[in-house]
Design a binder for these strands. Structure first.
Length: 351
DNA sequence: CATCCGTGGGA
DNA sequence: TTCCCAAGGAT
């Protein structure tokens, strides 16, 4: 049997000394509950996203929309533009849907239970547990990638991920208690982020090394076991930079669902594994080169062509503002293309 | 249960 | 260069 009480007190003591200062966090042991809106917003932004990447977005969002009711009133287009660059754009659509649900169905107040939170758009098992624990002091079992890794090592779980997930969740549940549930959840995640790291874990600094089964194997970084990854195919296509000669570029609104759903983007060809097709609109095209971009499940090689001309259903947007509101893949494409104020002849060649 | 969905930083 | 993957959720 693992020394549950010792593990808990050792990790909480460590957290009291080493908790990171983060804009959405209240100091450990302060007894001060952080604003549920800020906790929820930070948790959604941090889904599959690093703290350094999400932090400036969090500060800007809370500056522009101090409460969930403010956020609920934001126009879709404005919200999506503010999210541009953060990735996983379904999160932004769900964020707005969730804010509106809280504003309309819950009187602007977040549900204070895990079950209540779970029913909100974009709030899954992890986020519901995290908000319940951190904002409402509920003893929820908060299991993210960090916690899974810590459990896999602490108990030397041999089952590979993702199959091990239920087992890791059960193990994490054995450590949850009524005392300081919010701090406990954050302590576990901080430990995973800073000490029990995916690579090169700092076991000599670990407050629960005394109980770690993976450490005794001599290769703690070999946990969690993982089943083999599928390799990413490569797709090819065109992006089209159409200008009106007055500092504006043509953008299209992408379909609500699917890749980069609901975001504005440059007009493109289809992206397939076949060679990229020629530009479909008659114009004097100048090919500028290509960019590489990596999505979650495929590599993309995008050839960028530019011309003056029109495009079906395009909206014309000032180029500087446009770049700001675009997903990264289109920012790259736009950056490749010289703007009207810095004209450049010829194109770059790839090889 | 498998697949889809971004991005950027580090080793 | 290439590979890994980070505070997941929806379908």
């Amino acid at each position: 049997m693992p020394p549950v009480a010792e593990i808990r007190s050792a990790l909480l003591a460590w957290y009291d000394r080493h908790a990171r200062v983060l804009p959405w966090r209240s100091p450990p042991g302060s007894g001060e509950r952080p604003d549920p809106y800020r906790v929820w917003l930070s948790e959604v932004m941090l889904q599959q996203t690093t703290v350094p990447h999400a932090t400036p977005y969090f500060l800007e969002f809370t500056r522009r929309w101090p409460t969930v009711v403010d956020l609920a009133a934001a126009p879709d287009e404005t919200l999506m533009a503010a999210w541009a660059g953060l990735g996983y754009y379904a999160r932004a659509r769900n964020l707005l849907a969730c804010a509106r649900a809280v504003a309309v169905d819950h009187g602007g107040v977040f549900p204070d239970t895990e079950a209540g939170l779970r029913g909100l758009p974009g709030v899954g098992p992890y986020t519901a547990a995290a908000v319940a624990a951190i904002a409402f002091d509920r003893p929820a079992n908060v299991v993210d990638g960090n916690v899974e890794r810590v459990m896999a090592r602490l108990f030397a779980v041999e089952t590979p991920l993702p199959a091990a997930k239920p087992e890791l969740t059960r193990l994490a549940a054995t450590l949850v208690a009524d005392r300081r549930p919010g701090d406990w959840a954050q302590a576990l995640m901080d430990l995973g982020a800073t000490v029990c790291r995916p690579k090169s874990p700092l076991c000599e600094r670990c407050p629960v090394a005394f109980a770690c089964a993976a450490l005794t194997t001599g290769a703690p970084d070999a946990y969690p076991r993982r089943s083999q990854k599928a390799d990413r195919p490569r797709r090819r296509g065109f992006a089209y930079v159409l200008r009106d000669g007055r500092g504006r570029v043509a953008l299209v609104r992408r379909p609500e669902k699917g890749l980069l759903g609901g975001m504005r983007g440059l007009p493109t060809s289809d992206w397939s594994d076949a060679p990229a097709p020629a530009p479909p609109v008659a114009a004097d095209w100048c090919e500028l080169g290509e960019i590489e971009h990596v999505f979650t499940h495929f590599h993309l090689t995008l050839r960028v062509a530019t011309a003056e001309g029109d495009w079906p259903d395009a909206v014309w947007v000032d180029e500087v503002e446009a770049a700001q509101a675009l997903p990264s893949v289109f920012r790259k494409a736009l950056a490749l293309s010289p703007g009207p104020r810095a004209p450049r002849r010829g194109g770059r060649r790839s090889t």
